Simulated scan of single mutants.
Amino acid sequence: MSHQATNWAFQQRGLKPATWRVLVMLADRHNPDNGCFPSQQQLAYDAEMSVSSLNDQLLKLEDLGLIRRERRINPKTRKQMSTRYILGFEDDFAQEPSPNSGVGNPEIPSPKNAESRLRNSETNPVREPVTTTTDFEAQTPDPAERCVKACGPGLSDYARRVIRDTDDVIHGWIEAGVDLEADVLPVLTGRTATARDRVIRTWDYFTQAVRARQTRREAQEARAGKNAENQHVRSSAPDSDPVVCLARWINSGARVPPSAVTNTQRDALLARGLVSEARLRALQIY
């Protein structure tokens, strides 16, 4: 979390509530040392909307010149990694892109993918530029290694050695839209919490449980996104005042990270009577 990123996000005016919420969630996920690398599934969960709705808001933020996206490829496995989001206040945002990406330079078009790697309903898939390996990428643990570390005593020492021969199963999950943090790791931890007689020799042992968790999560995200969109439609024209937008978010009952509200904003909310002290305490903001 970066206070500089959060403060910058709250200074942006004239945004629709859904667009503004996504910008705040990006700022909340920003690390002042490494940058901003959340998955789209994580962002959709944070903003309480579907992945399709999230992509619409990300495109709007790009069109407004508030964010820029860079696609990252693991140099060893050539697998696609989480996208880097460069926010408007960062020094990297104003730098000229590499000739391969073309983003920000109208004379050099960005490369186009045949189709989006995410399963969503857009007729215009999100197209993101290719970039070189960052220092943060080199420090990111391999997904298979993270899976091994997430397992408990139910995965014996012998199984930990032989199961690495089936790491392609994990890459297949990720390519199919399964979220490592939200779907895979919780299943592995839960299914290996206790020691067992049967030796697990392949990651495919967990496939059915991982798929089931993914299905439940996506259904919950779709319902949350539909409810949020319906609420926006019913509401009157949104107020461009960021404090009013913040109050509407807090009073909606949605998840609000404590780091998304600064002390100055909290005092302004209370002084204008837009939220109650009890509500802020319930959210651990006050």
Rank of each mutant, 00 (worst) to 15 (best):
D241T: 06
G253L: 09
Q284E: 10
A278M: 09
N55G: 08
F206C: 03
G190M: 15
E175C: 03
Q284A: 12
N227W: 12
R281Q: 12
V22G: 05
F206S: 02
A224K: 08
A268R: 14
S52M: 09
T132N: 11
L15R: 00
T215H: 13
S39I: 00
K76A: 08
V243G: 11
W249R: 08
C151H: 05
G177E: 04
L155T: 09
D28K: 00
V130Q: 13
S121Q: 14
D183H: 04
D142H: 11
M1T: 12
S240D: 11
A47G: 09
P111A: 03
V178Y: 05
L64V: 03
P125Y: 07
Y158A: 09
G172C: 01
P258L: 06
I250Y: 08
T131A: 02
S82W: 02
G35Q: 01
N120L: 13
G104H: 06
V233N: 14
C151I: 05
V244R: 08
T133R: 11
W173R: 01
E96R: 11
P153S: 11
M81P: 02
D197H: 06
N113M: 15
G172W: 00
F37W: 11
D142S: 07
W173G: 00
K112T: 12
S101V: 10
N105L: 08
P111E: 02
Q95R: 14
A44N: 04
L118A: 08
I73V: 15
